[in-house]
Design a protein around this nucleic acid. Structure first.
Lengths: 367, 367
DNA sequence: CTGAAAGCGCTAACAT
DNA sequence: ATGTTAGCGCTTTCAG
């Protein structure tokens, strides 16, 4: 910095001003300083600037390295943070690197706010983080003081999916649920609620699933082992749906002719031809925008933290059903369900739970 | 820190020693200091520690947020870096955040080494980064002083794939290439070389593709528009293969009965039932380990940079063919290829290039 | 616009 | 085993 100042014929303070883009330097001086810096290959040391500053303007993000939807969110977060004048610090979680470690890293860097994508840590832990700095939890329902939540209206998304199927004439609609994954409870509730509102509470058919393709495959095998297939399936997410789809087709079931299928997320997979999945779209850009806005507000208006004013907010983004090729009216022979001789639903391991409660052993609940 | 020292009844220096895990404190003192810190909620400020230290022990990683295989690598990198006692700083690239910006961020944080996953920046740029600090380029061929490269032996991987198909009896094997994606050139070369070694140079059939599912779909449509389908296809990667697979099946072509298909990467998609893709596996763990080792060596033995000793190294990890369900012997009627009346291969837009050179307009070459 | 000076929260070499 | 003392490279304030 000294060298740059010398080369540009100015003081160190001026160099600082130029690189901070602070007022107090003429355009020509700025140009001269920048030129000198470029020639010398000088680049301000971020560690030092952050240290000498009260505000780091850093937003820490924890996310699951493997999750496609998290990647979409991260992408959108970069854009949103940039617009707000903040930097993002990414901290991924992996099988060998837990969420706690990810958070620790961010805190060590003195991030001013934490954005946690689909956290799986116990609520109590997250609550604790919230005591020290603003925390925004994305894609998971949670109530904790000073912890804001941004999530898709999962229940409504599933409701839209079920309604669409009902409109097509389906009456036997199963839900391959997400076990204990973030959002899974809400989606289960949406499913149960939709059937109940339609006057079909006895049609509730919950099948254990999860958030990976493999979970979907297992769920589909389960369905295939039943005496009577449902005419439609709403799966926890797109990844799971792809598993269901592939396994059903591998089992000789035609989709959507014999069974309709709806996913959730609208990730890259869903739009592929052949997959061409009808699904419920989550708006990653909107979610990211809200998350950053919340974080920044908390950081810049710390007064709220004392006044107890809006102790927590919950921002619920609306999902939208995207119609594609995996849904169609039920086959005519299914109109008079159940098929002759089939045992009552639920007798083969499928859960019949009007509460939408999870009564089957949850599958892997990864990030 | 002062407070912690006071509470533990020791000096600040001792607290520093304890948190650095440096020698010079008794076990009991350590315990006391840690306890005091815990009670006060103290946590060392990473910015300050890095500042006051010559070595940051930080490895910066640029990667494509959306790329599944990059995610696998990042996961493995976390493990490898941890083992080496280094921290990882992630810097993602997105449509709105270029690789240059990603690198700038890492440099501002004074990372001691850069690991770039499948960089798309011009070689000249990367060369420039290499002048200032160790750079390890992963999954891309590149020759630059002080820039180490770790990559899969792409050519050999494709060779294995082609050989497998030849062994099954295929003689008409097309390659859906990766346009200008990192590694695409090598794979193309491997394909051409394998056919040439087999004495079938005239059978070379290059079809423009890319690294996304959509690219695969387009390539498959292209294949379907031909008068005669090849009996086997080797695609640039798994994502592309999935596109090819889906589009072929959507077009009524049975895989592997009519057409065999081999992918590359062995990512999560490939193992799905129904996809069940025969593919060439890249070993992410091994690649990550080598990348970290290279980076750390350069950082800790900077002498090499002066002596000109091993100016660059290239570490080539062997791929392995994973046999699954998308390859089978060619249909009997194809043994006497070409089918009657079909025009010579290459007449419908398919490129016939014994050099393996890219003569078709490249598709999107994203990260 | 400059120059001086204090300080951010640590590390690290030295003295005790 | 513990205390002392410089920095690390910036930001920020203040008087000129």
């Amino acid at each position: 910095m000294e060298d740059v100042a010398a080369r540009a014929g100015v003081s160190r303070a001026l160099v600082s001003i130029v690189f901070r883009e602070a007022p107090g330097a003429s355009a020509s001086t700025r140009a001269r300083v920048r030129a000198a810096a470029a020639e010398l290959g000088y680049r301000p040391d971020q560690r030092a600037r952050l240290l000498g500053r009260l505000s780091t303007r850093l937003i820490g993000v924890t996310y699951g390295v493997r999750h496609a939807f998290h990647a979409d969110l991260v992408e959108a977060l970069y854009a949103a943070a940039e617009a707000a004048g903040y930097d993002l610090v990414l901290s991924g979680t992996t099988p060998v690197r837990g969420e706690q470690e990810a958070v620790d890293q961010l805190l060590a860097y003195r991030c001013q706010a934490l954005v946690m994508l689909g956290p799986t840590l116990p609520a109590a832990e997250i609550r604790r983080f919230g005591a020290d700095q603003p925390v925004v939890v994305v894609a998971r329902r949670l109530r904790a003081p000073h912890v804001d939540v941004v999530r898709t209206h999962d229940a409504d998304g599933v409701r839209q999916a079920v309604q669409h199927l009902l409109d097509l004439g389906h009456r036997d609609i199963a839900h391959v649920h997400g076990a204990r994954a973030p959002g899974a409870g809400e989606r289960r509730r949406g499913y149960v609620g939709a059937l109940r509102s339609a006057g079909l509470p006895e049609a509730v058919t919950l099948v254990p699933g999860g958030l990976t393709e493999d979970d979907g495959v297992r769920a589909a095998r389960h369905l295939l082992s039943l005496e009577s297939l449902p005419t439609a399936v709403v799966a926890f997410n797109d990844r799971c749906s792809v598993g269901v789809l592939n396994a059903l087709r591998a089992g000789g079931v035609r989709v959507p002719e014999q069974v309709s299928l709806v996913g959730f997320d609208d990730d890259r997979l869903a739009a592929l031809p052949y997959v061409d999945l009808t699904t419920v779209r989550q708006d990653a850009v909107e979610i990211a925008r809200h998350a950053v806005r919340r974080a920044v507000e908390r950081v810049e208006l710390p007064a709220d933290r004392n006044t107890g004013d809006h102790e927590m907010t919950e921002c619920i983004v609306s999902p939208r059903l995207v119609l594609r090729g995996t849904t169609a009216p039920p086959p005519p022979d299914a109109r008079g369900r159940p098929l002759g001789g089939a045992p009552p639903i639920g007798s083969t391991g499928v859960v019949n739970a009007a509460q939408g409660a999870l009564t089957t052993p949850p599958g892997e609940a990864s990030r």
